[in-house]
Amino acid sequence: MAASAGAGNATRGNAQGAAGAVGSGKGGSGGGTLSSALFYVFLFLFVLVSVAPLLWVFKMSIVQKSEVTATPPTILPQSFTGQSYSTIFSDASFQKALINSIIIAGVTTVVCLFFGAIAAYAIARLRFNFKNLVMTLILAISFFPAVAIIAPLFIQFRAIGLINTYWSAIIADTVFALPLTIWILVSFFKELPPDLEEAAKIDGATTLQAFRKVIVPLAAPGVFTTAILTFIFAWNEFLFAATFLYEESVQPVTVRIPNFATVYTVDYGAQAAAAVVVTVPLVILVLIFQRRIVSGLTAGAVKG
């Protein structure tokens, strides 16, 4: 599902900065300082809109109750309290939900990487017919509406006793995360020079040994990026968890937190704090690995 054959360069270009892409197309010629000032105003607004909801909800989570409901609302925090966070963290069901999320997303990531890396290597490096068929099937799966299979899966999972266990969510999440994993890994594997495996094979290694000893270590950064993306995907999943996990003790945060609107009816600060706690780890991951994530995402989507 590629845009163009040159997309591989695009992703690298992205990491490097688009310095040469359009050259001095706009910035250099004409307008000078005025246009570049406008440009930065535009950028500032764009960044502000992107992060404003998080900042606002963060503010709600750290101010006192009287300020949360104040009319007119305050823009900058005027009071401070850790009350909302202690409410949330003393809620045992919230802690359990966090652990459940980590287990479900973590196991899904490991399973996807294992099966995904093997399949992606074959697709990227080995020759076989039906490759396009396989790739098309994999891609089609990742975009079909998940609701189309929740009823049959529910019946199946109930028959084998998986309802209200982590495995029901992990198995279903894996099917939708695996295509993502494979597509991104294929594009990372293709960027590695083939000479190294050739050399390993000449030295007597089998294809599988070459894969394990040469490709996997070399592709480690790409595999790591894929792991982050798969983890974020599984961490954010809601539909399957809501369908198969109706007992509170196994629900992940995505299912628990919307219920806080009825648990902490008027405690908006606590609801805000819960949202912040679930988001912050992802925001930190994104800030640290933004460059890699962008190249992984665009590789998976534009190229693949």
Binding site: V51, P53, F238, V253, A261
Partner: peptide
């Protein structure tokens, strides 16, 4: 800018709906 762009994307949809 790239980081700011990714922040909304990384949010769980459910959590952005709550926020």
């Amino acid at each position: 800018v790239r980081a700011a762009v990714l922040v909304p994307w990384a949010f769980p949809t459910v959590i952005s709906a709550v926020m």
